[in-house]
Design a protein around this nucleic acid. Structure first.
Length: 499
RNA sequence: GCGCUAUUAGCUCAGCCGGUAGAGCAAUCCCCUUUUAAGGGAGAGGUCCCGCGUUCGAAUCGCGGAUAGCGCACCA
């Protein structure tokens, strides 16, 4: 192997910092110490001293720590950033001994330091820490992006998210909000008696949705397994078991499909089930849950998403799927029940109807093209075709439909819910039909029937409402994120050498 | 999977009709020292994404490839 000569610019910059690190060690300073006792955050001091006048000074000494984001006047002024915000650090030779002034020479933007000092507001109004002592807490070896333009290259932002977070406060804010949103969902459900549970990620039959799964292999058991595409069939087994009449899970699903601004191969889903209620109760729960989370986290139920105002205040509109199609196209699929008739109208309305499409599939395609783009405000689209909904109970008033709704916000499917199918004989028939109709090119339908699930139903599952909510998309709307990658800390990327 | 676009210094970007690469920030050294993108000066820093081709000559043109973004398809 030839020796690589370190002459790249980055290598030089890194070597310069390693030299500083060695100088620190030579001075007997550990550049990576163990602890630092903080007594304040930047935001706490801004709040406490918000009325301090220019040139005003207080004698109380605080300790705080954070990352150096800028240095001015040879380090006399430092912008220190912690998770609460930014505060200026003022280190003057009048206040500290000479060793500390020399230490400034060995600091760089990006280093993490701890300081002790009192608070003073400068003549120009900048609240500052007048340093009495200063300590390096972590030496940074690589240069941060430029302070003015920051990091904008999207590829680097996603690949090296830590840099994106260091440089972009709004990115930190998005992930803070993500955490708060999920916490509020948990709190909301827990307060209403829902039990949080966990179900298998590794499954032998990837059921509960129509999607292409990731395949993997268990060595000891010598068998293929799949990463789950949905937790549904296991959560409903829990409903049979009856540990709780209300259960929920917030966790990852994996789907081996295309990547887009709205799709990541792994994404977070909330699924919940409640015994003795139907899909009407799920509609009320959906809008109350989402609106109250928005109120708690954002302080409002009216959000702006990409220049559009979205009002999450309940109650939300409801439209039947057939009614919605009729409203936007004038065509009543409730009167077009034969497949040839439906196919003909569907094609006229722009749907790409394929051989073998059922009435429900055609209606769904027509809906997607002609209705979905109009559904900006929250709306529950109710009563789906039976043949595209194998896990939902037949509609009590119309046998070709099921009691299912999808909640649309900004045109996207945010929630999907039904009166759960609990009839084991009907369920067995639908699964078997699905599997026998599976075509060669169909990678989404499971290859075999999940008979264990059918057996569970045969022991009896209480009538239940079930609900799934796409958490990432909900967070996108609540944080005004243009891409799902902006709300997933480490989105799926092709690996790249040489970053 | 297909189409469009992008890729130049650590970062943000210029670079025209092909003539051999520039700025600002960061870094280094010097000066200055209550700054707010601090200021002044000096020097340094490059696999122009990769490969092949055209050409006397390619960052620039052509072909192939890589990665990414967007759109389409699939889906939530």
């Amino acid at each position: 192997m030839t020796e690589k000569v370190a002459h790249s610019s980055l290598e030089t910059l890194r070597n310069t910092r390693i030299q500083k690190l060695n100088d620190l060690v030579d001075k007997g300073i550990n550049p990576y110490p163990y602890t630092f006792d903080r007594t304040a955050s930047a935001a706490q001091l801004h709040e406490k001293y918000k009325d301090l006048p220019n040139e005003g000074e207080d004698s109380e000494v605080f300790s705080l720590a954070g990352r150096i984001m800028a240095m001015r006047n040879s380090g006399m002024f430092i912008d220190l950033v912690d998770s609460s915000g930014k505060i200026q650090i003022f280190t003057h030779k009048e206040n500290v001994d000479e060793e500390k002034i020399k230490l400034l020479k060995l600091l760089d933007v990006g280093d993490i330091i701890g300081v002790h000092g009192n608070v003073r507001r400068t003549p120009r109004g900048e609240l500052s820490i007048k340093v009495k002592d200063l300590k390096i807490l972590s030496k940074s070896l690589l240069p941060l992006p430029e302070k003015w333009h920051g990091l904008t290259d999207v590829e680097t932002r996603y690949r090296q998210r830590y840099l994106d977070m260091i440089m972009n406060e709004e990115v930190r804010d998005t992930f803070l909000k993500r955490s708060l949103i999920i916490k509020e969902i948990r709190d909301y459900l827990s307060q209403r008696g829902f039990l949080e549970v966990e179900t298998p990620m590794l499954q032998t039959i990837a059921g509960g949705a129509t999607a292409r799964p990731f395949k993997t292999y268990h060595n000891t058991l010598d068998m293929d397994m799949f990463l789950r595409i949905a937790p549904e069939l296991y959560l409903k087994r829990l409903m049979v078991g009856g540990v709780s009449e209300k259960v929920f899970e917030i966790n990852r699903n994996f789907r081996n499909e295309g990547i887009s601004p709205k799709h990541n191969p792994e994404f977070t889903m909330l699924e919940l089930y409640q015994a003795y209620v139907d899909y009407n109760e799920m509609m009320a729960l959906t809008e109350n849950l989402i609106s109250s989370v928005a109120q708690k986290v954002l302080g409002t139920m009216i959000v702006t998403y990409q220049d559009r105002e979205i009002n999450l205040t309940p109650p939300w509109d409801r439209m039947t799927m057939i009614g919605a199609v009729k409203k936007f196209t004038g065509v009543d699929f409730g009167q077009l029940l034969s497949v040839p008739e439906a196919a003909e109208e569907g094609k006229k309305l722009g749907a790409e109807v394929e051989e073998g499409d059922t009435w429900g599939v055609i209606l769904d395609k027509v809906f997607e093209i002609n209705v979905e783009p109009h559904l900006i405000q929250p709306v529950h689209i109710i009563d789906y075709p039976r043949d595209i909904s194998p896990l939902a109970k037949p509609h009590r008033d119309d046998n070709k439909l099921v009691e299912r709704f999808e909640t649309r916000i900004n045109g996207w499917e945010i929630a999907n819910a039904f009166s759960e199918l609990t009839d084991p004989i009907d369920q067995r028939r639908r699964f078997e039909q699905q599997v026998s109709n599976k075509r060669e090119t169909d990678h989404e339908t499971p290859a075999e029937v999940d008979y264990d699930y059918v057996t569970a139903l045969e022991y009896g599952m209480p009538p239940s409402g079930g609900l799934g909510v796409g958490i990432d998309r909900l967070i996108m709307i609540l944080t005004n994120a243009a891409s799902i990658r902006d709300v997933i800390a480490f989105p799926t990327m092709r690996p790249k050498i040489n970053i």
